[in-house]
Design a protein around this nucleic acid. Structure first.
Lengths: 123, 123
DNA sequence: ACATCATATTCTCATTGAGGTATATTCCAC
DNA sequence: GTGGAATATACCTCAATGAGAATATGATGT
């Protein structure tokens, strides 16, 4: 993948937050809606953008689309995702997102929203 | 500096090439025109963009503006510039730019273009 | 087959950014 | 202070991008 494509993917706040969350493991669209507090269309379009450019992978699980970071990222992608994670750790927006993720989905219980069932396996 | 700002600076090919060249040391505008083979306005505007966003510093030396990477980059900037350099090393465009820089300005001689005098000190 | 839920796509609109031409600024040499 | 070189800015045009509303698709359960 071209370096410039990677940076173009990274130059939007919503996409950065998505990638930051994905560093913790796969998530489905409704997770992002909940965690980022954004509308379905917005989330969906940014995920499509990231997918088109090879920044994330997606699989359907029953009714839900589960997104994850690439299993075999290119060296450049790997380096930049690592760098992003490092930097994000220092910034409050991203900290807050991870905190919310842990709070809501840290351990899945029977009270977890039904839409989260596909990713129960991840924790 | 905000992480998002950094990525917005990095998502243009000309700016990436500029930053890659600056990793070798300070350069003036006419260097960039020569090395990147682009017009003065284009170079100048991208440099202004980078400067506005804190990605480069500029000082005037006589008739020339000399641009350099920040002397005290934020941690995020530092990390991302390092990452960029690593990645650029693998891509032909950036390799070629560095090769041209070395070829034309690797060692300054009396035949160096007059405009380069400000940066003689850098090598 | 039908209703419903999760997600994707289409359309439109406003904003942004890149590139070019022309013009302005800043410094130097005389 | 006049002219010229190096650089910056203003203004214009065009393409790309992001956001939301409405609509379409695809899977599930009955």
């Amino acid at each position: 993948m071209d370096l410039i494509r990677i940076y173009q993917c990274l130059c939007d706040q919503t996409r950065l937050r998505v990638l930051n969350l994905l560093s913790q493991g796969p998530l489905c669209v409704c997770h992002f809606q909940e965690l980022l507090d954004e509308g379905q269309v917005k989330i969906s379009k940014h995920l499509a953008y990231l997918r088109t450019h090879g920044m994330v992978e997606a699989t359907r699980e029953a009714n839900w689309m589960v997104y994850r970071l690439p299993r075999k990222p290119s060296p450049e992608l790997k380096a930049n995702l690592a760098c992003l994670q490092d930097c994000a750790r220092e910034q409050s927006v991203f900290q807050a997102d991870l905190a919310k993720l842990r709070r809501l989905h840290g351990k899945f219980t029977d009270t977890s929203p039904i839409c989260c069932s596909p990713s129960k396996s991840r924790i």
